[in-house]
């Protein structure tokens, strides 16, 4: 298994507050790594450091390294826009842009300078199919994306992310606003995507992590307590805190 993402002694701060503490983690190609843990454990902060969306908060600072394919993405000379193209992200709440379904999908590719109408159409079809949404919307691509149901919107956001052909996809609690049926469809899409992409999934539902991840990491108060194969974490965790969280003692 090749290593896709690796951090060395990663510390993340917001002002004086440390959100992630001395994190060393390796994430492999074509796996789904589930990250679980209670609120404020640094899961989302870590996730947003992988596409440098943290840069948007003025108080953000970090030290240590975040290597993707062996290159520190915080080093000088790394173009943050191309980084974000390689590392896609699906947010907690479905966030379609205020435009049509079609425009949402082609938004990324167009910004990269792609204007060929035929190519754009192909991208729309392919990415909607990959996100299991094509059949539901193929006849109404001009519809305002906001008018889709919550689950459809979230799959549209996945499709939109796929359209820029990322290598890594970050999911930030992707089903927190969805009903169980929509959640199942999103998870179905995720498992399928593993074949082509490396996926990091932050979730509040330990069961979701159990269903889809190949490995699971447990975060607590900014520290990674444990990381292991999914079945081992859930059947035989090494750390008592992991066991406590999974069995519902806290969190």
């Amino acid at each position: 298994m090749t290593i896709k993402i690796k951090t060395n002694k990663l510390n993340i701060y917001y002002g004086d507050k440390q959100a992630v503490k001395s994190l060393d983690i390796e994430i492999y190609n074509n796996e789904i790594l589930g990250i679980i843990g209670p609120a404020n454990s640094g899961k989302t902060t870590f996730l947003r450091s992988l596409n440098r969306l943290n840069d948007l908060s003025p108080s953000f600072s970090h030290d240590g390294e975040v290597l993707i394919d062996g290159v520190d993405i915080y080093s000088k000379g790394v173009d943050v826009n191309s980084l974000r193209k390689r590392v896609g992200m699906v947010f907690a709440l479905p966030l379609p842009l205020p435009m049509s379904i079609y425009e949402n999908i082609v938004y990324g590719p167009k910004r990269q300078g792609l204007t060929d109408k035929k190519k754009l159409n192909e991208i729309v079809e392919a990415s909607l199919k990959e996100a299991y949404l094509w059949d539901e919307v193929k006849d109404r691509l001009d519809l305002q994306a906001m008018r889709l149901s919550g689950g459809q919107q979230q799959r549209l956001c996945i499709a939109r992310t796929l359209a820029v052909e990322p290598e890594i996809i970050l999911f930030d609690e992707p089903s927190s606003g969805l009903d169980p049926i929509s959640t199942a469809r999103v998870e179905e899409a995720m498992v399928k995507l593993k074949e082509k992409y490396t996926i990091v999934l932050v979730t509040n539902h330990t069961k979701q992590a159990a269903r889809v991840s190949s490995r699971v990491a447990f975060f607590l108060m900014g520290e990674m307590i444990e990381i292991d194969k999914t079945d081992r974490i859930f059947t035989n965790p090494k750390d008592s805190r992991t066991e406590g969280y999974i069995s519902g003692k806290f969190g």
Binding site: N51, L53, F91, L95, L97, R111, T161
Partner: peptide
């Protein structure tokens, strides 16, 4: 969140503002 969604798709800051 609109800005974040756009940036996460690899759009630059100005593209995000403009589009």
């Amino acid at each position: 969140s609109y800005r974040e969604a756009s940036l996460a798709l690899g759009a630059s800051k100005w593209q995000t503002i403009r589009h």
